[in-house]
């Protein structure tokens, strides 16, 4: 995506914020739709398994999901490439201004959309305003609902509690959540780099989804460093950004031929 910095007024201000800091590219030509990223994300970020009933209501909690679409009319349908959809960490996010309690501010330091769980009061306005539909709401305390535990000798056992990531908050009932670009990994890498007196190097760490991708379709890194892998991939001819016409300035670039 090329940014026209000659735009005036609000659009000019938006264009200035277009670059961002952390970004991602997803190569739809390589993606096989295996859902390894979905599983890895759930493990890394303490995502809850909502159970059958709530899944039926469409309350599944996924910070990344694989979308597929069909082209053409039945019976001449053709599947389009798989499209992993996650929070685009918009530079000009529709979710941010609608929050009445500022629980989803824009991070000035990391240039990400944050979700502050302890501040969120659960109006769900942000999810309604998200054009990518990537936010999920905690309708219950999914990590402790009795129906989702196993009764062993009269005591409730939650076996998955042993795999919770201590670096990520276990969200409670009534708060919104979404992809954070694995901000806990960003902080860890920054902390390590700082303790060694250097800058974070490109490829030193990556998000859980990019790490798990067997086809290496997902690349994560600094988009404001022209020499980083992700920014070189993002500036290819194949790069497209979703719903760009809404001026959301997404940080995720999808690579797709044609």
């Amino acid at each position: 995506m090329t940014v026209d910095l000659n735009l005036v007024g609000a659009k000019g201000a938006i264009a200035e914020a277009a670059q961002g800091k952390w970004g991602m590219t997803i190569d739809q030509d390589i993606c096989t739709g295996c859902q390894a990223c979905v599983a890895a994300c759930a493990m890394e970020n303490n995502l809850a398994f909502v159970g059958e009933e709530d899944a039926g209501y469409g309350r599944t909690q996924h910070w990344i999901r694989i979308e597929r679409f069909w082209d053409g009319e039945y019976p001449h349908v053709q599947a389009t490439p798989f499209q992993p959809m996650l929070c685009q960490q918009c530079g000009h996010a529709p979710c941010e201004p609608v929050c009445p309690v500022f629980a989803t501010p824009h991070s000035p330091a990391e240039d990400l959309n944050l979700q502050v769980y302890n501040r969120c009061v659960g109006t769900r306005y942000c999810a309604n305003n998200c054009p990518y539909q990537v936010r999920s709401f905690n309708w219950r305390d999914y990590h402790t609902v009795p129906e989702l535990g196993n009764m062993v000798n009269g005591t409730l056992v939650f076996p998955l509690h042993n795999q919770l990531n201590p670096d990520v908050t276990v969200r409670r009932r009534g708060v919104m959540e979404k992809c954070t670009f694995c901000i806990q990994r960003i902080h860890k890498a920054q902390d390590k780099a700082k303790s060694e007196g250097r800058e974070v190097e490109d490829g030193e760490f990556t998000t859980a989804c990019a790490q798990a991708c067997p086809a290496s379709a997902i690349t994560f890194g600094r988009v404001d460093h022209p020499e980083s892998l992700v920014s070189q991939l993002a500036h290819q001819e194949r790069g497209v950004k979703h719903l760009e016409e809404l001026n959301t300035l997404p940080r995720v670039t999808y690579l797709k031929e044609g």
Partner: peptide, 12 residues
């Protein structure tokens, strides 16, 4: 100061 007063530095 930007980094140290950013919500995302402690809350995630």
């Amino acid at each position: 100061r930007t980094k140290l007063t950013d919500c995302g530095t402690c809350h995630y």
